[in-house]
Amino acid sequence: MYEAASSYISKEHEKFLKKVKRKNLMIRVTQLAFLIIFFVVWEILARYKIVDPFLVSQPSRMLKTILTLNQNGTLLTHIWVTLSETIVGFTLGTLIGMFVAILLWWSDFLSKVAEPYLVVLNSLPKIALGPIFIVWMGNGEAPIITMALAISLIVTIISLQTGFKEVDEEKIKLLKTFRATKMQILTKCVLPASVPTIMSAIKINIGLSWVGVITGEFLVSKAGLGYLIVYGGQIFKLDMVMTSVLILSILSALMYVFIVYLEKKLIRWR
């Protein structure tokens, strides 16, 4: 009675596909070209002293910084410290946030009780808590991870909770006509329906975890990219600062790409 979509491709459609492909390629090429030009111009301007390389650094000097830092093996340590803190903070933020959001979805009473606290905690600038964390937890990784958690957790809870609430009541009613338990409503409908919300919360969460970790490292640290940035700033070594910032942006971009990949795998039905 109905025909499944055929695999036959007409000439016209082929042309169309080619055009789309060409356009996508052009976008990539332009993006890459922009990046290369940016660094080349930076290098030239600095080399001919049009801008002061002492203040704005210079790609070749950044490369040298990477090599020297790498020689004594400290660069990888710094990267690893920051990366691991971010991953731990991010994972904790996502898991705890998810758990609390589920709890608040489960109990309307709890959610009403928690509401004003969430609002206040959300608007509080979390950096203000930094000194408290340091006093409580010393100057290791703990206060830094806690900082990342403090910054990302409340946002995660609020956005997940909103997402859960927006799940179509009628879908839940449908499950109730099958006599579903509350647990089944959660696992069969609310969670899967919220996958897009969860993914976007995760994306925001990653960004916030980086902010939290770097902020934490600014306040208290003996290693990490945040430490390099602050230290470099204090001894006026802008090369070190710029290099760290560059590495930081590459890392966060990679992490983001990974999440987008994960999202594609999870939301196949779109």
Binding site: L175, A180, P192
Partner: peptide, 24 residues
């Protein structure tokens, strides 16, 4: 049967039709 079909977009047709069986 409710006012709209309320198929779960994230489930295939097969997974949708067995939803009630799965729940029970």
């Amino acid at each position: 049967m409710l006012q709209r079909d309320h198929l779960f977009e994230w489930r295939t047709i097969w997974q949708n039709v067995i939803l009630g069986l799965e729940i029970q």
